[in-house]
């Protein structure tokens, strides 16, 4: 038996449901020595902004129990350089390319970036990062259902590409935001982005990150991420790309069972740059072992006692 791992997200067809999370995979090149990039379900790029961004002061990362904090601040070369220098390489890989985009102050930039990306054939989908915690503007679009609705519906009008909205866990009610994105025409949801957090060097009484606060990722956030995926799965019809602390096959499986149609691996790429192909193999084995013909059967297959 050869289990079918293929899935679709809107009009985006993926040969397998394992993606890499934005900001943890550079622009693909960084991993070419470690894996066959063709094996990936899709590549999600580091978030791109209209203009280049320098990002925050270092130190920008620190380790925490079963996780890490980052306050990169969306350092990226800007849309023009991205299109000129990064897209050709990414296009050659031959794996669906999902471009993550953001804007700090002017939501209009989401539109101009989306319009430009809409014209690039190699770009298969756009992920709206409305949930980056590392910007000066502390109020996130993803923390406000009305703002989420406004932005997603505007972008929806300028692109026919698959549209993914990336949600923040730093909210009181994740399903309100998810529903707003659904109503506005998003094709899928990515969740979760990092959880706000901080860490202190007690000897110096200084924050370990120069920006004081940052975003927590890694296994420590997995239970939070799973719960949110489960809640959103019950509330919306949209396919969910689940992420947060996936580090091996069992942890990826948890997300499918909770309701994800696909998963993205983030911090684990740093720990083991060869992890994604391992998880893809692991999913196949699990399906075979459990007589599952298509990975789609696993999505939301949680058995609750009644």
């Amino acid at each position: 038996m050869k289990p079918n791992l293929s899935i679709s997200i809107g009009k985006l067809k993926l040969k397998n449901p394992v993606l890499v999370a934005s900001g943890t995979f550079g622009y693909g090149e960084e991993f070419e020595d470690f894996i066959n990039l063709k094996e990936l379900g899709a590549i999600v790029t580091k978030t791109i902004t209209l203009k280049p961004r320098q990002g925050n002061f270092p130190p920008r990362t620190c380790e925490t129990p079963a996780g890490m904090l980052n306050s990169i601040g969306l350092e990226n070369p800007g849309l023009d350089v991205f299109i000129k220098e990064k897209v050709p390489y990414l296009a050659r890989i031959g794996v669906p390319l999902i471009v993550s985009i953001a804007s700090e102050y002017d939501p209009g930039e989401f539109l101009s970036v989306s319009r430009r990306l809409d014209k690039i054939r190699a770009v298969c989908a756009i992920e709206l990062n409305i949930s980056c915690p590392n910007l000066k503007n502390k109020k996130l679009i993803a923390q406000d259902p009305a703002a989420t609705y406004r932005l997603v519906s505007k972008v929806r009008r300028v692109t026919g590409k698959a549209l993914i909205t990336k949600l923040s866990p730093n909210v009181t009610c994740i399903t309100d935001i998810a529903s707003a994105a659904e109503k506005a025409g998003s094709d899928a949801l990515s969740l979760i982005n990092t959880l706000g957090g901080m860490s202190i060097d007690t000897r110096a009484r200084k924050p370990k990150l120069a920006s004081i606060c940052g975003g927590l990722s890694g296994p420590s956030i997995r239970p939070v991420a799973l719960k949110m995926v489960w809640e959103v799965y019950q509330k919306t019809e949209l396919p969910i790309i689940g992420m947060g602390g996936i580090i091996d096959t069992p942890s990826a499986l948890e997300f499918f069972i909770a309701g994800a149609s696909a998963v993205a691996v983030g911090t684990a790429n740093f720990v083991n740059p060869g992890i994604v192909p391992e998880i893809i193999r692991g999913l196949k084995e699990y399906c075979r072992g459990h007589k599952i013909n298509s990975i789609k059967e696993l999505t939301g297959s949680l058995r609750c006692q009644d």
């Binding site: 900001g23 943890t24 995979f25 550079g26 960084e30 991993f31 470690f34 580091k46 990002g55 270092p58 130190p59 920008r60 990362t61 620190c62 890490m68 980052n70 990169i72 350092e75 911090t267 790429n269 740093f270 740059p273």
Partner: peptide, 16 residues
Amino acid sequence: EAHMACGIGACMGCVI
């Protein structure tokens, strides 16, 4: 030296 999460140029964490 810098704090490194990935060491392979992917995270943008180790800048000076």
